[in-house]
Amino acid sequence: SVTREEVAGCIYQYEDEEAIRHLFLVAASLDSMIVGEAQILGQLKEAYRFASEKKTSGLVLNKLLHKSFSVAKRVRTETRIGASAVSISYAAVELGKKIFGDLKNKRVMLIGAGEMAELAAEHLVGQGVAEVVVANRTLERAVKLSRCFHGRAISLQELVEQLKYVDIIISSTGASGLILAKDDVGPVMPKRRHQPLFFIDIAVPRDLDPAINELENVYLYDIDDLNSVVEMNKSQRDKEAVKAARIVEEETLKFSGWLKNMEVTPTIIDLRTMVDQICQNELAHTLGRIDSLSAKEKKSLEKMVGAISSKMLHHPMQYLKANHQCVNQRQRIETVRNLFNLDHEEGNTS
């Protein structure tokens, strides 16, 4: 069993403005391991959807969550925090776009069935590639993986022959030596009319002969190249994160202001109701003893009483809403409620 102390070490708690700020940072992906990755926002929306279905979120939480979604959108719109690839698989896709422009209708071959190659293939499928071909030492594994992408499987012996028909090759095998050499790729290029061929070697040790890169219209990137792209992009995202943090701080202050006004609203309503009730009671009592007033005069008297009521309320209202260095808002609310006896109904209108 897990002890309370063990659980306590895995959780944290924020209150008031710190809680608002933390939620906005999470939604804007500034609190993620990979800054700028949008996946966490989807998880947050899913959690909120679940809470809404179970009717466990009230007025404040609803507004807070909706505001966190708009803060995330503002960060994405006003900064470039999500513009650059910061994962190996996504970096491979970005490089492919630079070579081909549009990845639609391009054909992809996966050599091996490594997790990173699979992730890269998922990103490429998301960009609209026409087909995914999977080559693996074990044909059964190739068939299983190809079904995930509605593609087809081939054996490693068919590898060189298939180079004529694909545009992007992602290699991630556990082979101890090279599986494709320059001499394997060179003869294929005339057969494909020297259309560009993009190789991504994310195997360690390398699967592909570095000399392949010497061939015209052939582009080879290995894991070190991709890591360099990722590190450069991470640095760029860190710069954008400074702008994003400013937006989060701005929105935190705005929402905190709204929340503080929400806290004083019940007291303002109670105070206004009490004063209005006293004024109306006294007005009715006075008018009941004076029969000679015309309708116009009665109207003027009612307006005067309303003006007196507003002037009486002005300073207490300002006291509740203003920022005081020495007295926090909850203390101010308590002071006003005690001063005007708002929590004892019998005394409110006497």
Rank of each mutant, 00 (worst) to 15 (best):
K234G: 11
L139I: 06
F50P: 13
A135S: 05
K164A: 09
Y319I: 09
V75Y: 01
E78I: 09
I333F: 02
I179W: 00
A284G: 11
V143R: 12
V133A: 06
K303M: 14
F199Y: 03
V229L: 08
H344S: 11
F149E: 00
L139Y: 01
E46Q: 12
G257I: 04
S84W: 15
S57R: 13
L64G: 00
D209H: 02
V264S: 08
L44H: 03
F69I: 12
E263Y: 13
L44Q: 00
V275E: 02
L44R: 08
R21L: 10
L163R: 03
A295I: 10
E122I: 14
E345I: 10
A92S: 12
G288Q: 05
S155Y: 10
G288I: 07
F69P: 05
V2M: 15
S309D: 07
K54A: 10
C10H: 13
T77M: 00
T349W: 01
Q318E: 14
R289N: 10
T79R: 00
L320D: 03
I34A: 07
K164S: 11
N62K: 07
K144D: 12
K321T: 14
L259S: 09
G177P: 07
G42R: 06
T335G: 13
M317W: 14
T273P: 08
R80M: 13
Q195M: 15
C279I: 15
D225I: 09
I212D: 01
I81H: 07
I202Y: 01
L103I: 00
R49F: 15
A175N: 05
P196V: 02
D207F: 03
G257A: 09
L313K: 00
H285N: 15
K260G: 13
L103E: 02
Q13E: 15
A322G: 14
E346V: 12
T252R: 02
A85R: 00
K55L: 08
Q157W: 14
V218L: 03
N348Q: 15
K63H: 11
A47G: 08
R337A: 00
Y48P: 05
D102C: 11
T173L: 02
L110H: 04
G36V: 01
L226H: 03
V125N: 02
A295F: 07
V230I: 03
S29H: 06
S32C: 08
R330C: 10
R141Q: 12
E346S: 14
S171P: 04
R237H: 04
R21I: 07
S228Q: 12
